[in-house]
Amino acid sequence: MTRSRWSDLERPPLNAAALRRAVVVPGGLWTGLDVVETTGSTNSDLTARAARGAPEGAVLIAEEQTAGRGRLDRRWTAPARSGLFFSVLLRPGEPGPARPDAAPDDSAAPWQPVPVHRWGWLPLLAGVATATALSRAAGVDTALKWPNDLLVTVDGEERKAGGILAERVTTAGPAAGGPGGAGGGPDGAGSAVVIGIGLNVSLRADELPVPTAASLVLAGAQGTDRDPLLRAVLRSIADWYGAWRAAGGDPALSRLQQTYAAGCATLGRQVRAELPGGRNLSGTAVAVDGDGRLVIAGPDREEAVGAGDIVHLRRG
């Protein structure tokens, strides 16, 4: 039997037109929204669009990914229409539109470009935005594992229900040094960030790729309709991104740093950081610093980790 978009009525397709009407609004962050039936990776596809000069606020959603990518070259696979698999395009190095929350005397003032050294907060911002949206829209307490895993509780056990991957891309167009040009200076002009989010929504236990995975339905979600869940997440990302940009990317001024710390399940835990180059670092995760790095207190000193795989050993 040939599979169609209506072949699994328990997993109906997303309504692209309704989603577009809900989130692509005048003055909003989101400037375009596309839903495709299947693709290898929404991040790869949107990165290609960004390189050709696609505007900030483009959203690409796939009902199914055949080569979804996670951190450290891991693969993300799930049955069609069983989750939310999407990517968004942001251009924090370019001036933004007039801020809707600006005071009357400066309502025409656009956001200023965010310095590149603060862009590392974007995947953490996406994590905060997604977790807060899911808590409200699905009634699921969602925690964050540094740097960008989404955790839920199933049968008293923390499990991964989603993940986030952010990639910087050099783009083409006027912002990259002229029509058809390519560039991307140290100030971030001519560069974009593509953030991919994968979230298991309706996966059953026998469909999980690994025993440590989870889904919203297994975590007891009050609602698993993907349309309102996606709208809630996109609106939350827009809100947090707006606050972060209005603060010049300052994680403390925008309250991003404090909110991330409050929802981070890694802090206070005994962890092992598996670092690039094969080095391991064990200790207590004590803070997320101003650059978004995880601070681990070892026997002799504290060290800030900016990249690597974090293993939760036990609760502190």
Rank of each mutant, 00 (worst) to 15 (best):
R245Y: 11
P211H: 07
D187L: 10
L134W: 07
P123C: 07
W121Q: 05
Y241P: 07
R301Q: 05
P147N: 15
Q257H: 04
R269W: 07
I195C: 04
A189W: 10
T130W: 13
G188H: 08
G292R: 09
L275I: 13
R269T: 02
G183F: 03
E303I: 12
A213H: 02
G139E: 03
R5S: 15
D101K: 00
D101V: 00
I197D: 04
Q270S: 12
N15S: 14
G93S: 05
E56L: 07
E94P: 03
A129C: 06
N43G: 12
R49A: 09
P228M: 13
A285C: 14
A246V: 03
A307C: 10
G249A: 15
W76Q: 03
E303K: 14
S7C: 15
D250F: 14
P113S: 06
G242V: 03
L199D: 13
G188D: 01
R69G: 06
T47F: 08
D155W: 01
L60P: 01
D101S: 01
R293G: 11
A285T: 06
A126T: 07
S7I: 14
D155E: 02
A287V: 03
L72P: 09
P79D: 14
T171V: 14
N148E: 12
L19A: 15
A252T: 13
G248M: 10
T77C: 07
G278Y: 12
G185W: 08
V23E: 11
R11G: 04
I195T: 10
A182W: 12
E157Q: 00
D101M: 00
H117E: 14
A48I: 04
S4W: 06
W146G: 02
L9E: 14
G298H: 11
Q257K: 04
V194L: 04
A137F: 06
R52K: 03
G283V: 13
L267T: 07
T132Q: 08
V210L: 08
P174F: 06
V286Y: 08
Y241I: 09
A175E: 04
S215A: 13
S87T: 08
R118T: 06
G278E: 10
R20I: 05
R74M: 10
L229T: 09
T2D: 11
A50Q: 02
E167T: 06
A102H: 05
D106L: 00
A246P: 03
P92S: 05
S107D: 01
D227G: 15
Q270W: 09
L218W: 01
A103K: 04
V271F: 08
G308H: 14
S135V: 05
L19Y: 15
D8A: 15
R315D: 09
S41Y: 09
A133D: 08
L90A: 04
G190W: 02
S254D: 14
H117R: 13
S82K: 03
T31W: 02
V311G: 01
D250H: 14
